[in-house]
Simulated assay, not measured.
Amino acid sequence: MTPTEAALFEAAGPRARRRILIGTIATSLVFAALVVWLLMRLDANGQFDPQYWDLFASVNTWKFLGAGFIGTIRASLSAGVIALVGGLVLMFGRISGIAPVRWLATAVIEFVRGTPTLLFIYFFFLVPSQFGIHMSTYWMVVIPVSFYASAVLAEVYRAGVQAVPAGQREAAESLGLGRWQVYSSVILPQMFRIIVPTMVTQLVVVVKDTTFGYVVTYPEMMQNAKVIVANSTSMLPVYLIVALIYILVNYAISRFARWLSSRSDVKILVA
């Protein structure tokens, strides 16, 4: 049982474990039957015919998907780095002792967290050009994605600050350290240790949000998949392969976050 599960659930007794086992077996059987039925339907409709899968024997297909994968990684990493800094700025605004700054930061965080990333992408796609500002499709994806991730990370940072024992701050202040010295030397180092697993987990959201790049035709993996589908009759196979790649990437990130959590002996916080 992970630290998070231990905090949320009591250890199951013999009867509960029996019910869980029966439920797991029943659910697995239903799921397996559903998968078999789906595969039979696809086979009946000819979706496994070689003509739909031949394109994956071509190196050019994988090169094109690989180029889209690199585009996804570029946008994800850039948005992630910007979000790390932007979230820190918003967090300091949220906990500021100056009321107007605190109100503004809180309003921005709540507004951004409550607004779909896709709407921000449409905004940067349509509005700046009306004022003569021409952005590349790369920034039309990176800025909105990082904007949303910054708001989420601001709350993660704030949770990390609140998780640092109050005695640490009091001890630092008793030594005569100023507010910024307390944060830079005492609070932030401990905060980052606590929230690193959660920060890594947020990369999953960032990677998934980059799939909205198709709206502005940014050449990420989903956009390149659409181009392949438009030039072939292999819609289902292409999207199945792309979905599998996304699942593997996000699963790897999630496992890495859990590994970090176990190494640092901290829970993955939920914003």
Rank of each mutant, 00 (worst) to 15 (best):
T2L: 02
T2Q: 02
E5W: 12
A6M: 09
A6W: 02
E10R: 15
P14A: 06
R19S: 14
I20C: 05
I22C: 03
T24Q: 05
A26V: 15
A26D: 09
T27W: 01
L29P: 13
F31L: 15
A32N: 09
L34V: 11
V36W: 03
W37Q: 15
L39S: 04
R41L: 10
R41M: 10
D43F: 01
N45V: 04
G46A: 08
Q47L: 13
F48W: 10
F48A: 12
D54C: 01
T61H: 01
W62L: 06
G66Y: 00
A67T: 00
A67N: 09
F69G: 01
R74C: 02
L77N: 09
L77P: 04
S78E: 08
I82D: 08
L84V: 08
G87T: 06
L88P: 04
I95P: 07
G97E: 10
I98Y: 15
I98S: 12
A105I: 05
T106M: 03
E110G: 03
F111T: 12
F111W: 12
F111E: 11
R113I: 04
G114M: 02
T117V: 13
L118S: 08
L119D: 07
Y122H: 03
F124R: 03
Q130W: 10
I133M: 06
H134K: 11
T137L: 05
W139V: 05
M140E: 10
S150Y: 14
S150L: 07
S150I: 13
S150K: 12
S150C: 11
A151E: 12
V152S: 01
L153E: 13
L153K: 09
V156D: 10
R158N: 04
A159N: 14
Q162G: 03
A166R: 07
E170F: 13
A171L: 05
S174N: 02
G176F: 14
W180L: 13
S185C: 04
Q190M: 05
R193I: 03
I194E: 11
I194Y: 14
T201S: 13
V204C: 00
V205H: 02
V205K: 00
V206C: 05
D209R: 04
V215Q: 10
V216D: 11
Y218V: 02
P219M: 15
P219F: 15
E220Q: 00
Q223R: 15
N224S: 05
A225N: 02
K226S: 09
V229M: 14
V229P: 08
S232W: 10
S234H: 11
P237I: 04
V238M: 12
V242N: 00
V242E: 00
I247W: 00
I247E: 00
N250I: 09
I253A: 00
V266I: 13
I268T: 09
L269K: 01
V270L: 07
